[in-house]
Amino acid sequence: MDLEQLRKTAAEVVVREDVKYLIGWKQGSYGYRVAPVFVEDASGAAELLFSPLCTANLATYLTLVEKTPLPRGQEADKRKVALLVKGCDSRAVTQLIVEHGINRDQVIVVGCPCPGVVDTEKLAEKYPEQGKPAEVEWNGENFVLLCDDKETELPRDQFLAEKCRLCRHPNPVISDITVGEPVEPWTLADDNGVEEIEGKNLEERQAYWEEQFSKCIRCYSCRNVCPLCYCQDCILDRLNPTWVNRAVNFSENTAFNIARAFHLAGRCIECGECERVCPANIPLGKLNRKMAREVRDKYGFEPGVDPEAEPFQASFKPDDPEDFIL
């Protein structure tokens, strides 16, 4: 990835009259951190970064903007928001368009074809984070870690993030401007963690998920980070009626986790953010991938690839499977 080209393109975009700001990544404060940045003028574009550390899905910010009521007589700011996206992030944008979460003409998608990002947890395990920022770059197949003027080669098969091992769309599915050359999609890993659980019997599965869900502290990070969990009136915050009690115990945690996974069935674009931010290390990706697989295999639907599609749970086909119906 040519950073110069990225920064130049971004600078050209932000100076446009009809652009409010550009959301991108910049170097974080220490270690392998990468921070989101809102670039409002050409000089800010010099900070932008696109590297194997840019795991975060910035599409979340599109719906986070608070829409406060306008004082009388004041015009709404109708300028567009530009956004840097990887392949998976572009699917989130597409899905948001499908759901009318955002309007297509309100975003400028700056696509960055993505050769895959690193799993920073694994990286920090092997090469502990230091007080100052480190850099990671793509180098052919592999990654290189640049730290203390040392270059360390990071083999791809060891450090590639799980979501990338299973990524079907490394190139942005929609983009107004593309920076860099498209990448060649790679062969998917065959272990997605779902079959492993399906191989267990009911009691074992119950035991497995009881152990997992019991760890949940109901911080709702998984919801807040998700680009597609943007309901203004989330069912988990409702008190009257209280759909999911706030108590933190296995029963309520299960109800919560099932509700979350269900609400994202046919919508989750497998960016892996929920699992990455979960402080309890609950394998939320397995739930998401299980649902994504059912949606794909049984209903022939893949979310976030076609901006013209009907939302999965708000549509039906007359011949949907009904073998489970008495």
């Binding site: 986790n257 099932i258 269900f262 209903y299 489970f324």
Partner: peptide
């Protein structure tokens, strides 16, 4: 039709987390 799609998904999800599918039925 919507119910069929959603409940089919829910059944799969519940089975995945270890709820016996015998506990969940749908009929016309």
């Amino acid at each position: 039709f919507y119910a069929r799609r959603r409940m089919g998904m829910l059944k799969d999800l519940m089975e995945f987390v270890g709820v016996d599918p015998k506990r969940f039925h749908m009929s016309w």
